[in-house]
């Protein structure tokens, strides 16, 4: 048995037997879409496929749904708006634990630093569009059994098993809200820095999201830290694992690093202007400005 020919070799073999490919023997492949032309001949011409007389030829077709005087079908029943305001609801495109583990294994994410939306967007793999009401990451439980990383991650939505999986490995998780303006900035920080604007304050969550982000069970960023540590213990009891002690961890500082509720980037405060070109940070000195950004 000889070696199996490789995919490229078969093509090469065929090409060597064929005449030289040049401008003179190029053709589009069969099935390429063609522009339709207005025919003049026997079957393309004449009425051009529109038939003789009537609404077909004159193109005065009835409006959709009209049934020539009958009660139209669409008016027989009441309106049931299943998707009412659907386009205004907050969407959280999913990121599974399997994908997160893969991103970490392929060195697209650095585990030695806290992971936030900006870090995940920078991988270029996560598809995220704030302009169509995407409000951040929904970390899902797919691949939960194979998740081994110890991370400090900040997501926008998640579920209880995911929180348990991360905390069992000695990591920490936070759910945090970002307003659309902050999301655009987080998606492409470099583009924002090039504009030369001051980093804005992060807005507080809207009314219908405030319960989620103040709940310690969801590890909300507005929840009481003491309640969170209690909930960590409760979850460990519920899922039956021993909670690794954060205080004894060598990465304690990294794992407990949190953003201020008004902060968008780790280490950068609202009001600062980042000059990416000259690698300079400009901080406001005016008291009025400072007060504004610290509110």
């Amino acid at each position: 048995m000889g070696l199996k020919p490789k995919m490229g070799d078969l093509t090469v073999q065929m090409l060597r037997a064929l005449p030289r490919i040049g401008l003179y023997n190029l053709k589009p492949i069969l099935g390429m879409p063609k522009l339709s032309k207005r025919g003049r001949g026997q079957h393309g011409g004449d009425k051009h496929g529109c038939g003789n007389k009537g609404s077909g030829q004159r193109q005065n077709i009835m409006r959709p749904g009209y049934e020539t005087g009958n009660q139209p079908f669409y008016l027989l029943f009441g309106n049931e708006p299943y998707y009412y305001r659907h386009h205004l609801r907050r969407q959280y495109p999913p990121l599974s634990l399997l994908q997160l583990q893969t991103l970490i294994d392929t060195d697209r994410i650095d585990v030695d630093r806290p992971i936030d939306l900006a870090a995940i967007c920078a991988t270029g793999v996560y598809r995220f569009f704030p302009n169509i009401k995407h409000f951040g990451i929904n970390l899902t439980d797919e691949g939960i059994d194979n998740f081994k990383a110890k991370v400090n991650i900040e997501v926008q939505w998640t579920s209880e098993p995911v929180i348990a999986a991360i905390e069992r490995n000695g990591g920490t998780i936070t759910t945090a809200y970002y307003d659309p303006h902050s999301l655009f900035i987080l998606k492409d920080p470099l583009k924002f820095f090039e504009r030369g604007e001051a980093i804005p304050r992060r807005m507080i969550p809207p009314q219908d999201a405030i319960m989620f982000y103040t709940d310690a069970k969801n590890r909300g960023y507005l929840a009481d830290p003491e309640k969170i540590s209690w909930e960590r213990f409760v979850l460990a009891q519920k899922y039956g694992y021993t909670l690794p002690k954060l205080e004894e961890d060598p990465d304690y500082e990294m794992l407990t690093e949190r953003k201020d509720p008004r902060q968008i980037f780790y280490g950068l405060e609202p009001g600062w202007v980042i000059n990416h070109h000259e690698k300079v940070i400009l901080k406001p000195k005016d008291n009025e400005l400072r007060e504004y950004y610290q509110q």
């Binding site: 995919m7 490229g8 093509t11 090409l15 490919i21 190029l26 053709k27 589009p28 492949i29 390429m32």
Partner: peptide, 8 residues
Amino acid sequence: GPRIDMIH
């Protein structure tokens, strides 16, 4: 593997 259609 050459794509003749793309060349065209």
